[in-house]
């Protein structure tokens, strides 16, 4: 028996949706860009090569913590020695930013719409007969978003460190800057904006309070994060693109396809 908008109690209208605008653009663009990112990042993460071009370290591989890391890439040491040599160092660390984005409230909206069509757009019926939301495994795991936020916060600090040490030349002499420095700098700013505008961050800084008046400092933090939060989707897209571009630039340098443009 028909259900949903075609159900027996609803107004009898044959078409599942009467929308005439181009509602499919958002899910289509999301699908294409996200798929491209997943393909690219999977290739780069599993390749385990061409991620370091002194002084630049790819954000996909930072921090580089395993013994498989190339010389010069491990400013925080190589405490992970039990992994086989073929195991890419990126896989050790990428799980955290990946988990952060996968459980992010904005990305959830985006991929539920674009990949799961649940729904593809407002007032456009979804194709699934049953719907249980985020009540059961595996989607109940979306609730651990804030733990990934904590990890992503630490990684943002490390990426900031990477951007600072990029003000060196290839011989690690300070006081230099190249196009790679600028790319890493822009990337880390976008990563911070995305991380700090997170809904969990907003909740932790002050959203969970009932009385802002008793916590004026936290209220100011919450107000600041709330302003950022209004642009969370924009930061999610911008930082997704910037992190891929930063990695690609370093890949081109590491493979000697191009030379770094030095400003000074």
């Amino acid at each position: 028996m028909a259900t949903g908008v075609l159900g027996p109690e609803r107004a009898r209208i044959d078409k599942p949706t009467l929308r005439q605008d181009r509602w499919w653009i958002y899910p289509a663009v999301t699908f294409i860009v996200f798929t491209a990112f997943v393909v690219y990042s999977t290739w780069r993460a599993f390749s385990g090569a061409n991620y370091y071009a002194s002084p630049y370290l790819s954000p996909f591989y930072s921090p580089c913590l395993s013994t498989a890391c190339v010389p010069g890439a491990s400013d925080f040491g190589q405490p992970i020695s039990f992994l086989p040599a073929w195991f890419s160092p990126a896989l050790v660390i990428l799980v955290f930013p990946l988990g952060f984005r996968l459980t992010c409230y904005y990305y959830r909206k985006a991929y539920y719409r674009a990949f799961w069509l649940s729904p593809a757009a407002c007032a456009v019926p979804e194709p699934h007969k049953k719907y249980t939301g985020e009540r059961r495994f595996p989607l109940i795991l979306q609730n651990i978003h804030r733990w990934f936020f904590y990890a992503a916060f630490l990684i943002a600090i490390i990426l900031s460190y990477d951007a600072v040490i990029a003000f060196r030349d290839e011989n690690h002499e300070w006081g230099h800057m190249g196009l790679g420095t600028l790319i890493l700098l822009v990337n880390v700013v976008l990563i911070w904006l995305y991380t700090l505008s997170c809904h969990s961050c907003r909740h932790i800084t002050g959203g969970r309070l009932r009385n802002f008046s008793k916590h004026p400092l936290r209220y100011r933090f919450w107000t600041f994060v709330s302003k950022l939060n209004g642009h969370h989707a924009r930061f999610a897209w911008a930082s997704l693109i910037s992190v891929a571009l930063a990695d690609f630039y370093i890949y081109l340098l590491a493979t000697n396809t191009i030379s770094d443009v030095r400003f000074f």
């Binding site: 409230y105 959830r108 909206k109 539920y112 719409r113 649940s118 729904p119 407002c122 007032a123 719907y131 249980t132 939301g133 985020e134 009540r135 989607l139 109940i140």
Partner: peptide, 15 residues
């Protein structure tokens, strides 16, 4: 109230 059934696709905000 079934809060966890919501998958935050934001259609409510849109309309």
């Amino acid at each position: 109230a079934g809060l966890s059934m919501c998958n935050i696709t934001k259609c409510c905000t849109e309309v």
